Amino acid sequence: MAGPADGIIDLYSRRADDWDADRGRSLIERPWLDAFLAQVPAHGRVLDLGCGSGEPIAGYLVRQGRRVTGVDAAPGLIDLCRARFPDQDWRVADMRGLDLGRTFDGVIAWHSAFHLTPGDQRGLFSVHARHVAPGGALMFTSGSTADESVGEWRGEPLYHASLSPEAYRAALDESGFDLIDHRIDDAACGGATVWLSRRRVRE
């Protein structure tokens, strides 16, 4: 039986232009993006999971000299990315179970993975492990406590979920990542809960 999380892809597919119009361009995320980029080589490759319309996150990464591969399940959002940044690599794909067959210097999932069910979020760590090169960076956002909720956006239901902080820490460790920085409900970043980590390099 379909649940509220199953409507996310359809919602963003139908309303890509509305989402793009509502997405701010102020880039309050910049301090976190800079911390992420400090872990990525000057001309490194970044995978953006749930890239949306490419602005402002992917656009900032591109302007800082990184090569971006963006993945989103909504074709309309990827169309906007391709129009804005035709020299980058944009893919219509579901991040769940993704396997691009190569690794990146950094992977970011900003305000995207929290639309997945708790079970799918746990499974996403195998996706991260497949795509982050040893020594590479992983940054994502989450909720601050274990929870599932259905809010509203432009009159339509919008699903969010989160694991507990302890579960995220365990998943990072089990997947081979060391935590670099973490903030719960960062007031300077719109209340985002952010996780920045690095993939271990094994001898």
Rank of each mutant, 00 (worst) to 15 (best):
F125P: 01
L179P: 05
W153N: 12
F177H: 07
T193A: 07
G123H: 02
A188V: 11
S162A: 15
S149T: 15
A58Q: 01
A74L: 04
A188S: 06
L27V: 04
D34R: 07
D94F: 10
G70L: 09
V62G: 01
G190N: 10
G136Y: 10
R63S: 04
G101P: 14
L179I: 15
A129V: 00
A187I: 13
L27T: 09
W153G: 09
L158Y: 02
V62K: 01
S149V: 15
A2S: 12
L77G: 00
P4D: 11
A93F: 10
R102Q: 13
A146E: 11
S175E: 08
L98I: 06
V46M: 00
G70M: 00
I78G: 05
G24Y: 02
S149E: 13
L49E: 08
G119A: 13
P4T: 09
A21W: 01
G135I: 07
D186C: 12
A16E: 04
D105Q: 08
D120K: 03
A161P: 15
L158S: 08
T145L: 05
Y159D: 01
G3Q: 07
L11G: 09
F114D: 11
G123D: 13
A129E: 12
V68F: 04
V62S: 03
Q64V: 01
A5F: 14
R84H: 06
G119W: 02
L116T: 13
R199C: 06
A192Y: 13
G3M: 04
Q64M: 06
D186G: 06
A171N: 14
D147E: 14
W19M: 02
H128D: 04
D72N: 03
T141H: 05
L163C: 10
L100R: 03
G65F: 12
A167W: 15
A21P: 08
G106W: 13
F36E: 06
R66N: 00
W110G: 02
S175L: 04
P75A: 01
H128K: 00
P4C: 07
Y159K: 02
A146N: 06
A129H: 05
F85S: 05
F85Y: 14
D18H: 06
R63H: 04
S175G: 01
E174S: 15
V40D: 11
D181V: 12
D48N: 03
A83Q: 13
D186I: 15
R183F: 10
T141M: 05
P86N: 06
R91T: 04
S53E: 07
D72C: 04
V201A: 11
D147P: 02
S26I: 10
C51E: 09
L49C: 15
L158H: 13
A192Q: 10
G76H: 02
H115G: 08
S164A: 15
W90T: 00
V46L: 05
L61K: 00
D6H: 12
A16W: 01
A5C: 09
F114C: 05
R102N: 01
D105Y: 08
S149Y: 03
G44F: 08
S13H: 03
D10T: 15
G135M: 08
S175D: 01
P75S: 03
R169W: 14
Q121F: 10
T117Y: 07
A42K: 08
F36S: 02
H115M: 04
M1L: 07
A133V: 05
R45P: 00
T103Q: 13
H43C: 03
